[in-house]
């Protein structure tokens, strides 16, 4: 099971890095989302992969899964969710104000003049 999870994290991270390096805002948002997902799975796996073991107290249990990474992942998911929502709104705002969806977009001649000066 370890190698499967490791491959999933690796593929997701590399896809996320690739998308984050794109020039337009929408792929960047998707890339950051993928990166956040892979970080979450990674964080979860750091509590060691166990099957069929309870996270909280159970008198009959032989062992326990680590509950702390689960709590951490929950926090990380909420934060990543909020940040992504903010980024999408900001990307839309940039699209309407800059006139294009390039991450680096200098579009209007006015901007370009200002940069030259």
């Amino acid at each position: 099971m370890e190698w499967l999870v490791a491959i999933v994290i690796g593929v997701m991270t590399s896809a996320g890095v690739y998308l984050t390096l794109r020039a337009r805002t929408f792929p960047v948002v998707l890339g950051l989302t993928l990166l956040a997902y892979s970080a979450n799975v990674f964080l979860f796996a750091m509590g060691r992969l166990t099957i069929g073991q309870p996270a909280v107290i159970d008198a009959a249990a032989a062992g326990y899964g680590d509950p702390l990474p689960q709590a951490l992942v929950l926090t990380a998911i909420v934060i990543a969710f909020g940040m992504t929502a903010f980024l999408i709104v900001l990307a839309l705002k940039a699209r309407s104000e800059l006139g294009n969806d390039h991450v680096d977009g200098l579009h209007r001649s006015h901007d370009e003049q200002e940069t030259k000066q």
Partner: peptide, 14 residues
């Protein structure tokens, strides 16, 4: 940066 932070913290926790 936040994503990298999670990776780093996760590895340290592991």
């Amino acid at each position: 940066g936040a994503t990298l932070f999670l990776f780093a913290v996760g590895a340290l926790y592991g």
